[in-house]
Structure formats: structure tokens, C-alpha cells
């Protein structure tokens, strides 16, 4: 295997670089959980996963409720996804992370 081929293999199978990141959440609208993204799909991605996780945490803090049940308009199941809508591992723990988790099976 030539060096270039080896580098290509590494780039293909290990270095999977997302184009960007979005916060994915569910919002209680008219009693139903509706999936949404921020920035919205019409806007540009955020290019930093660190920034996106920070943003997700802030959204979670803004929507947190005492009884852990979503009220109208509040955000639950907040996480970060990449450009292919795949869940991104939280860089601190190395595992998936969901803020304000409410009903994981429907997410």
C-alpha cells in the first residue's frame, strides 16, 4: 500500500469530519412534541461542537422546569447533531448527551 493510499484509508474510515453542528430538540406545541433545530435548517451550521454544546446547555437552562414535565413551548430532549442528523457525542464525556430528557423513546 502506498503512503497516499494509506492516508486515504485513514481519511475515509477514521477522520469523519462533520460540515457543522446544530442543536436538535423537541418542543411542546399544542400538547405534542415537535422536533426542531437551532440554527434552523435554513440557516448556516455552527462550525464548533464546543459552541454548539454550550448553546444546547443554555437552551436547556432556559427551558428547565421544576417538575421535569414540559409545558407549552418548552424545549426537551435537547442534543447536538451533525450535518447528517447523526447524534454527536458530548466532547466532555465522550458519550451521547441529552439535556432536559423527557421521553427518549419518541426522540
Amino acid at each position: 500500500m502506498k503512503l497516499a493510499e494509506g492516508m486515504e484509508l485513514i481519511a475515509r474510515d477514521w477522520i469523519v469530519k462533520p460540515q457543522g453542528f446544530r442543536v436538535k430538540f423537541q418542543q411542546m406545541i399544542n400538547g405534542e412534541l415537535v422536533t426542531g433545530y437551532s440554527p434552523s435548517l435554513e440557516e448556516n451550521w455552527l462550525d464548533s461542537d464546543v459552541t454548539t454544546w454550550r448553546y444546547a446547555w443554555k437552551l436547556a437552562m432556559a427551558s428547565a422546569s421544576d417538575d421535569n414535565r414540559p409545558v407549552e413551548g418548552s424545549l426537551v430532549n435537547i442534543t447536538v447533531v451533525d450535518d447528517k442528523d447523526r447524534s454527536v457525542n458530548y466532547y466532555v464525556t465522550g458519550r451521547p448527551q441529552v439535556f432536559n430528557a423527557f421521553c427518549a423513546k419518541s426522540f
Binding site: 492516508m7 481519511a11 477514521w14 477522520i15 469530519k17 462533520p18 460540515q19 457543522g20 453542528f21 462550525d47 464548533s48 461542537d49
Partner: peptide, 12 residues
Amino acid sequence: MIEDARVLPKPN
């Protein structure tokens, strides 16, 4: 470094 989306693949 490699896993960060903004780090350029070349140079490695």
C-alpha cells in the same frame, strides 16, 4: 485535533 471539524486534513 483530527476529530475536530475545523482542523484541515492536509497537512496532517
